[in-house]
Amino acid sequence: MAARNSKQQYGWMAIALHWLMAPAIIGMFALGWWMRQLSYYDPWYRQGPEIHKGIGILLLALLLLRLVWKAMNPHPQDVPGTPRWQALAARAAHGGLYLLLLAIMVSGYLISTADGRAISVFGWFEVPATLQGLANQEDLAGEIHEVLAWTLMGLVALHALAALKHHFVDRDATLRRMLGLRGNPAPVGRRNESGMNETAELTK
């Protein structure tokens, strides 16, 4: 498989970035939600936020790489027969995911650096504060961080459901090509024929 996208397929770079980030992002939401409820004497009271901040910075780097990569590569065409509204909705959702991720990461960074402290990424390197000392910076950034994180999870759920719908209901190649697979989902049951036909049409 090529690293770069083609008009028909995602390259391995885009696929790797997607599947590296997806579980990390969902895990970060869970970690962020969980770590705020820890008692002061919990062994994770300090570890939880340290890991959350470290992964957050790494995810920001991956996101920037991903956006650059996306700009440099063609976008695989929608599967044939995609209604226009669906194509537009998918574009909007993808754009929304990127925007929310960026805003969540920046707001998180602004919480921890509000007093000029740097963020240490697992002790490997430090990201210094830039914007600091704004009025109520850590509180405002914190509220934005939380609201956008929940919004992101809503959009992630929609994104995942849409992918599953493409795979199991429409039986098209949308999810398979993000997994690096060619062709449509294997047909099952009575639907076989129509599925076969579509596959046949596609390969022509």
């Binding site: 919480i111 921890s112 509000a114 007093d115 402290r117 109520n136 910076q137 850590e138 509180d139 914190g142």
Partner: peptide, 13 residues
């Protein structure tokens, strides 16, 4: 009360 300052933004939050 919101003007509390313990010299650590995360703690103050």
């Amino acid at each position: 009360v919101a003007s509390i300052d313990s010299n650590h933004a995360e703690r103050d939050k």
